[in-house]
Each structure stands twice: as structure tokens, then as C-alpha cells.
Design a protein around this nucleic acid. Structure first.
Length: 646
RNA sequence: GCCCUCGUAGCUCAGUCGGUAGAGCACCUGCAUGGUAAGCAGGUGGUCACCAGUUCAAGUCUGGUCGAGGGCUCCA
């Protein structure tokens, strides 16, 4: 038999096989264990079914296991088919949407008269287990495009027909079949359902077909699956841990903030401890803005609507704006959803020489946007929030440098908190204003700045603001959801609308370029992310309560108050707990409240003139009062994430 | 906004078949004066989100309103 297939394996070795060999056979040739663990293969980087015959010729060949990223995708995608198969058996009238693998599992969307409820999940999951036991083979079948369309039409699968119609001209159309269930799918899949271990359905949700609220609402079932029960348990445990970090839960427990749900949904009420976070971050931000040549301004919360018409907000942003009308006055006022028009008015009060540019002004401006009720989420998505908002008016030549400066600012600020970030370049959306040339040059300026700064970034096509393209920065919350923080937007449109100019070297007026940018984004969202990032265990400079002094007994109360006073003199947030409880109970209370340091004082400490210091979650030790003062002052003032003792 | 779930004491939650409301923590009072994660006892605290309806009777059933939680393209 002639060897028609030559494979190069990742370890550098080469193998030859006869035509028609499958990856599973290759795996068996290496070891039985590998054949059991393999879930698919990569042939020249292309995902390949274990049971699908390899093409003739020479190929790079890799076997993929569940632990590989591609492996999880194969595995969960197959689990999604098993879910669809199970639903088809129990609810024969359903029609199918899509069912992809996602980061930590999979979902499948179904078109049904009556949406699924959580109570349905148990029965569906049981049916999935049955299908896995039946060990049905998943068979791949390449079909002619027209035949595929006809078959789906015959089955009444209108959504599948739509998907087929949208496939590119040259696409290979394939079906996968397990039992009675046939799905349009490019694969690959595990060879049979029996290769799946433990499935677990997690939740149901409504989801618009293709995410479009004008299309039908489908019923989505989310699930995950793992080879071993232990892995599933570890996954569920991780979800529980993430819930413990939830800023809404910690915000309540630590009395950081609340939302008066009946009186101001999406509006944050900062309690004293939470206001400390806001204030400390604000202080840091003010210092950083001043160092970078920004000047502070203040602007009103409402303006007459004519301003919003000129700015374009009335046309493009009205849905999210709150309006106010004065009694007995025809003038219509709008509450600001953005700070830019106010800042533009400041720039526009006089002539500006090119010598003054770049003209950078900033404000921690409070804005209101009427977000849909269903998207509100603790501090992370709100209706009233404070932006660290700045506008840079500059010449076209200065634009690239200004954007690079903003990117450096982002890097410096996030470094203080140790928060990892992801960059996105967002291009022109459908609802937008301005010419194509303007958009292209603005987008090029942003892209150039990202490249010069050597930053990795993704592109979000059509994700820009209505007046310009932007670079966004995203951070991740405890449950792995991404939230936008920083933004940097090049705008050639508002300068046109407001006829903003500067006087150039030549004495003539020239059009100014406007950069909108925020670094923290919104204080609310930033604080919410920080709560989850630190799980409430804030670094000393941010901690609402930095030190609590506990006298061992009443006779040491005076000494305790003296110690507290020494720290208070240095500006520390310090308290004394001389309440009528045993020391152990007071220690427990301080630990639960996540107080950064606890100082215990009793006879020994009075004698030695020192304190017994217990960093949050750590073992206590004795240290001289002076040394503690100096060390904690340093830890606070340098904004250390980890102190010498913590 | 739309789909599912939910709303009981300050917090976390129980409340059976429809029969007039319960626990732990917190808080207050007293006892106990204590050395590193929770001493003992007693007490206060509820328009069961709100509005209608069914019923002899509604926290419980039905409808509506308000609000919350999860989700609403990770692209066959």
C-alpha cells in the first residue's frame, strides 16, 4: 500500500499513512490513552474531526485534547448539539437557531411558542445524559448548497435557511447528524456523543435572533460540560468564588454605596466609606491631570436644547437624554449626557493662537443617560455617573502626539491599581455624521498612535461614537464580563459644527481638531471594578478604614486613644474600638469589615511603648509606634499595592 | 425595552394544602473586664414591594404596576 499522507507532528517527528486514514487512527497508533483523550485534530491549523479522513499530501498535524483551547471548543460545540438533540426529543415543535461554544461552555437558541423555564432544565439535562449513554455517532456530511437549503426548508427551519443564504459563495456546506438531529454546522465534533462526560445546564435567557431587538426573541439555554465530575465541581466552585467578589454584595456588606431602587434606579448613593474611595481616586486623578498639562474647568448640568441641536446630540443621542422644562417658559432644557458641548463653549469664548495649543481642559463632570432598565448593573452600568472628562483642542499636526500622550496616561493610571486592560479600536458606526475623508484620517491617527505605542489591540468595526472613531480600554469584572473604562476619540465633526478655529503662524484662522478622552471612564464603573479586583481588600491608601485600635481592657483606653491620635495627626482614617466585647470578637469584627490594620494595645504595649499590629488577614507582631507610623505613612503615600507587612 | 427568575425584619433567608409571621446575624438593655476570628441572657424590630381581583379567609392564587438578578451575535 502506498503512503499518500505525510504528517509532521508538533514534536518534529514525521509519519506516513495510507490514503483515507483518520486522525483517530493516527492517535491509536501512538497510544490508546491519547486516542481516548483526543477530541479532535488540527490539520495545517484547520480544525478536523477525529473520524474524518485526512486529505492526501503533506500536512502539519496536531492532536487536540480537552485541555487545549481548541479542544474545549470542539467539546462544547458537540455538547451544544447534544443539548439541541435532547430538546428536539422532548419538544418536537421547536425550531433551531444557533448553538456555538463560548468561553466557558455553550448555548443553543430555540424558537418556541412558550419560552423554556429553569424547571425545564432538569428534564433536558437528563435527556442529554441519556444521549451520551447511547453513544450516538456524529456524522459529517458535505451537501450541495441548494440541497441543504431545500432540506432545511422542508424541515421548516427558516432560521437555518437564512444562515445558508448568508454563507459566502465558495463555502463548503456541511451537516452533522446525531440520531434524529441534523444541524447545519461546519464542525468539527467529537466522533460520538459517548465521548462527552458530565453535562450541566446553567440557565435560560431570552435572546434576540442575531442580537437584533427587531427580530424574534429566541429561548436560549446556557450550559457547560466537562470530562470529569471533579472538573465540573471546580468550575461551579469558581463561579461561587466570583459571586463572593461581586461589588454589589461587597458594596452592601462594607456599606460603600446603595441604590434607592424605587426612587432613582441606576443612581449611586455613596455612603461614607464609599465616598472615601471616590475622594481618594479623585485626588490621585487631579494630581495626574495637573502633571500632564490639563487645566480644571466646571460646567453646568443643563443647557438649552439649541446647544444639543448644534452638537448633534439631539439628532443622534436623544433617546438617552433627560429633558427639563421650566414652568411658564418655552425654553426646553436638556440634562447633559456628555461634557463636550460645555467644554467647547469654553474654548469658543475667545481667539486662540497656535501658541496656546494643545489646549487641554478637564472636569470630573456628572452626566445622566437614560440607559434601558434591563442593562442597569450595580455601579457598572448606571444612569448617573461622573466622567473624568477632558477635551484637547489641537492642530492636526499635534493629533498623533496627543493621542500617544493619552495612551501613556492610561498605562500610568492603571499601573497604580495593577489592573490589566485590553485595547480596542472602534470604527465608523451606521448612525454617524461627517464625511468619509474625515473619518478615515481620524481612524488613521488613532491606529498610528496604537502602533507607535506598541500596544496590542482588537478592531470593533462600527463601534465608534457618532462623531468620531475611538480607542477604548476594557477591564474585566469578577465574573469575566468586560466593561469599557478609558476612551480616546478623535473628532473632526464638532469643530465644524461649532466653527472652532485657532489663529495659525500665518495669521489666518484654521480648523481645530478635538480629542475627547476619559481615563478612568466613569468613577462609578471604575470603583465597581476596583471593588471586585481587590475583593474589597483595598490597598492602604484607598481603604475606607486604615487602622482600628483595640484596647485589651478599659484601663488601656487612654493609651489606645493616644495611639489613634498619633495616626490621625498624619491624616490616617483611624478609629478606636473600646466597645464592651471580648478582644476576639472585636478582632473578628475588624477582619470582617476588612480594616487594613488592627493595633492591639494592653499592658505589654504600654510598658514597651509599642503596638501589636495585625495586618488584615495576617499574623500579628509587635512594633514600635514610631516605626509603624513611618512605615504606614510610606505605604499610603506611595500608594503601594502590597505593603511591607501586608 | 424584550425573555426567564425573583421581591417576607437593617442583612441573609425559612414560611407545608390559602387559616392573621419565624430563625440566625445586626441593633438595644443587663451580666461578664477580656491578649488575637465571634461570652451569656433578655428585648426592640414586619402595611410580607405597591395596586386591584378571587375567597368566609391571601405572604401564599390571578391580573397589573414598580424594582432587582441573569441574558439579549463569543456568529453554522
Amino acid at each position: 500500500m502506498s503512503a499518500n499522507i505525510k504528517l509532521r507532528l508538533p514534536d518534529g517527528s514525521a509519519q506516513e499513512h495510507p490514503a483515507g486514514t483518520t486522525p483517530l487512527e493516527v492517535a491509536l497508533g501512538i497510544s490508546a490513552g491519547l486516542a481516548r483523550a483526543a477530541v479532535g485534530a488540527l490539520v495545517d491549523g484547520e480544525p478536523w474531526d477525529l473520524g474524518r479522513e485526512l486529505p492526501d499530501g503533506e500536512h502539519e498535524f496536531t492532536l487536540v485534547k480537552f485541555d487545549d483551547p481548541e479542544g474545549k471548543e470542539f467539546y462544547w460545540h458537540t455538547a451544544a448539539h447534544v443539548l439541541a438533540t435532547a430538546v428536539g426529543r422532548l419538544f418536537p415543535e421547536v425550531r433551531y437557531g444557533i448553538g456555538p461554544a463560548i468561553d466557558e461552555g455553550y448555548y443553543y437558541d430555540f424558537l418556541v411558542d412558550k419560552p423554556f423555564t429553569e424547571d425545564d432544565l432538569e428534564a433536558i439535562e437528563a435527556e442529554m445524559v441519556r444521549i451520551i449513554k447511547e453513544d450516538l455517532p456524529l456524522e459529517r456530511e458535505v451537501v450541495d448548497r441548494e440541497a441543504a437549503r431545500a432540506e432545511m426548508e422542508r424541515r421548516g427551519e427558516a432560521l437555518k435557511v437564512e444562515l445558508i443564504d448568508e454563507l459566502p459563495e465558495d463555502a463548503v456546506v456541511s451537516f452533522y447528524r446525531d440520531g434524529d438531529f441534523v444541524d447545519l454546522c461546519k464542525g468539527p465534533h467529537l466522533p460520538s456523543t459517548g465521548r462527552l462526560g458530565v453535562p450541566k445546564l446553567l440557565s435560560v435567557a431570552g435572546a434576540y435572533w442575531r442580537g437584533d431587538e427587531n427580530r424574534p426573541m429566541l429561548s436560549r439555554i446556557y450550559g457547560t460540560a466537562f470530562p470529569k465530575k471533579k472538573q465540573l465541581e471546580a468550575y461551579l466552585e469558581r463561579i461561587e468564588e466570583a459571586k463572593r467578589r461581586d461589588h454589589r454584595k461587597l458594596g452592601k456588606e462594607m456599606e460603600l454605596f446603595s441604590v434607592a431602587e424605587d426612587h432613582g434606579p441606576g443612581m449611586i448613593l455613596y455612603h461614607p466609606a464609599g465616598a472615601v474611595l471616590f475622594h481618594e481616586i479623585e485626588r490621585l486623578a487631579h494630581a495626574m491631570y495637573r502633571e500632564r498639562g490639563y487645566r480644571l474647568v466646571r460646567t453646568p448640568h443643563i443647557f438649552r436644547s439649541d446647544l444639543w441641536r448644534t452638537s448633534g446630540h439631539y439628532e443622534h443621542y436623544r433617546d438617552k437624554m433627560f429633558f427639563a422644562r421650566l414652568e411658564g417658559d418655552d425654553a426646553d432644557y436638556a440634562v447633559k449626557p456628555m461634557n463636550c458641548p460645555g467644554h467647547v463653549l469654553i474654548y469658543d469664548t475667545g481667539l486662540h493662537s497656535y501658541r496656546e495649543l494643545p489646549y487641554r481642559i478637564y472636569e470630573f463632570g456628572q452626566v445622566y443617560r437614560n440607559e434601558l432598565s434591563g442593562v442597569l448593573h450595580g455601579m457598572l452600568r448606571v444612569r448617573g455617573f461622573t466622567i473624568d472628562d477632558a477635551h484637547i483642542f489641537c492642530t492636526p499636526e499635534q493629533l498623533g502626539g496627543e493621542i500617544e500622550g493619552v495612551l501613556a496616561f492610561v498605562r500610568d493610571l492603571f499601573a497604580v491599581f495593577g489592573l490589566p486592560v485590553r485595547y480596542t479600536l472602534s470604527t465608523r458606526p451606521e448612525d454617524s455624521m461627517g464625511s468619509d475623508e474625515i473619518w478615515e484620517s481620524a481612524t488613521a491617527a488613532l491606529r498610528g498612535a496604537l502602533e507607535h505605542s506598541s500596544l496590542d489591540y482588537d478592531v470593533d468595526e462600527g463601534g465608534g461614537a457618532f462623531y468620531g472613531p475611538k480607542i477604548d480600554v476594557h477591564v474585566t469584572d469578577a465574573l469575566g464580563r468586560e466593561w469599557q473604562t478609558s476612551t480616546c476619540q478623535a473628532d473632526f465633526n464638532l469643530p465644524e459644527r461649532f466653527d472652532l478655529t485657532y489663529v495659525g503662524e500665518d495669521g489666518a484662522r484654521h480648523r481645530v481638531v478635538l480629542v475627547h478622552r476619559a481615563i478612568l471612564g466613569s468613577f462609578e464603573r471604575f470603583i465597581g471594578v476596583l471593588i471586585e479586583h481587590f475583593a474589597g481588600d483595598f490597598p492602604l491608601w484607598l481603604a475606607p478604614e486604615q487602622l482600628r485600635v483595640l484596647p485589651v481592657a478599659d484601663e488601656f483606653n487612654d493609651y489606645a486613644r493616644g495611639v489613634a491620635a498619633r495616626f490621625a495627626e498624619r491624616g490616617f482614617r483611624v478609629s478606636v474600638d473600646d466597645s464592651n466585647r471580648k478582644l476576639g470578637a472585636r478582632i473578628a469584627a475588624a477582619e470582617t469589615a476588612k480594616v487594613r490594620y488592627v493595633a492591639v494595645v494592653g499592658a505589654k504595649e504600654v510598658e514597651a511603648g509599642d503596638i501589636n499590629l495585625r495586618p488584615h488577614g495576617e499574623k500579628p507582631f509587635n512594633v514600635s509606634l514610631q516605626k509603624a507610623l513611618d512605615e504606614l505613612t510610606r505605604e499610603r503615600d506611595e500608594r503601594l499595592l502590597i505593603g511591607r507587612w501586608s
